[in-house]
């Protein structure tokens, strides 16, 4: 039975009302991300009919699935980008967006992430990085800060977090940016850019999980986590002048790359045209 939703919230038109309320915990940063994404779509006047949203498994995979009212493909753990590759090739004129978490996209799915960036396929990835596996109960992720406590590093994390934005930029993406949920306007602008850039785009959003991460790291309240983000965010221009030691424990925010590179589906279709021409199979 569909529940009646009474709201003046403008972006509600982009949501599947029968699926609400979302299953996100109070204080989760996922809502901010969903809001930013809806605003970006609204501002760009993209018809949701021209959108396919793909996600994997985990809390952040639930941000848009099934709540965003578009074609939504909720897939297996880590594989969202590989599924999205098939969707994009089949529907090269649509916007294909992957919204999922750090464990999903950079942990188990890290390989698909770097390969999609290498191919520079025209997919927009919004990677919600909350430093933790939230849904399964707060285990360490490849993004967990050095020294943080999780249920599988009860004596604090000894591994270094993967610098997702840098690795993806190195792998060949057209557009890479990183913001936190405390930088909503910049985030909306970056999502807009990512959606317009031709080629692989990644917007990493550092987001709060007060329940699984904050609680174990002395930040029980969402506001405490947002303050932590704000206090430690360093704009990329400033970060370039800082030493690795100075950058320890900081979040570098801003645009990492924004460039034109050959795009996968375009190159693929170009190749098909060339083959057709070569064999005399073109449209007669």
């Amino acid at each position: 039975m569909a529940k009646e939703i009474y709201t003046k919230y403008k972006m509600a038109k982009y949501l599947r009302k029968e699926a609400l309320p979302t299953a996100l915990c109070p204080g989760c940063g996922g809502g901010t991300v969903l809001n930013a994404f809806a605003n970006a779509i609204d501002q760009l006047k993209i018809d949701p009919k021209d959108l396919v949203v793909v996600s994997g498994i985990g809390c952040s995979a639930w941000i848009a699935s099934p709540y965003f009212l578009a074609d939504t493909l909720h897939t297996t753990h880590g594989r969202a980008i590989a599924f999205a590759t098939g969707v994009k090739v089949g529907l090269p004129d649509k916007k294909v967006v992957v919204i999922s978490g750090d464990g999903d996209l950079a942990g188990i799915g890290g390989n698909h992430l770097i390969h999609a960036a290498r191919r520079n396929i025209d997919i927009t990835v919004i990677l919600v990085n909350n430093f933790i596996y939230g849904m399964t109960g707060g285990q360490v992720a490849p993004t967990t800060p050095f020294g943080a406590k999780t249920t599988t590093t009860p004596y604090r994390n000894i591994e270094h977090p993967l610098n997702i934005a840098e690795v993806v930029a190195e792998a060949g993406a057209s557009y890479v940016a990183r913001w936190t949920t405390a930088h909503v306007y910049q985030l909306i602008e970056s999502i807009k850019k990512a959606l317009t850039v031709k080629g692989f785009s990644l917007v990493e959003v550092i987001s709060q999980c007060p329940v699984q991460f904050g609680r174990r790291n002395k930040m029980k309240e969402p506001a405490e986590m947002l303050r932590w983000f704000l206090k430690n965010s360093i704009p990329i221009s400033k970060a370039k002048k800082m030493s690795p030691e100075e950058l320890e424990g900081k979040f570098v925010i801003g645009e990492f790359v924004n460039r034109q590179r050959p795009e996968f589906t375009e190159e693929l279709n170009k190749l098909i045209d060339e083959v057709a021409e070569h064999f005399g199979l073109g449209d007669e």
């Binding site: 299953a23 996100l24 915990c25 109070p26 639930w62 939230g134 849904m135 109960g137 329940v211 699984q212």
Partner: peptide, 8 residues
């Protein structure tokens, strides 16, 4: 219990 860690 539900998927949410709080409130479910």
């Amino acid at each position: 219990y539900g998927p949410e860690s709080r409130g479910g």
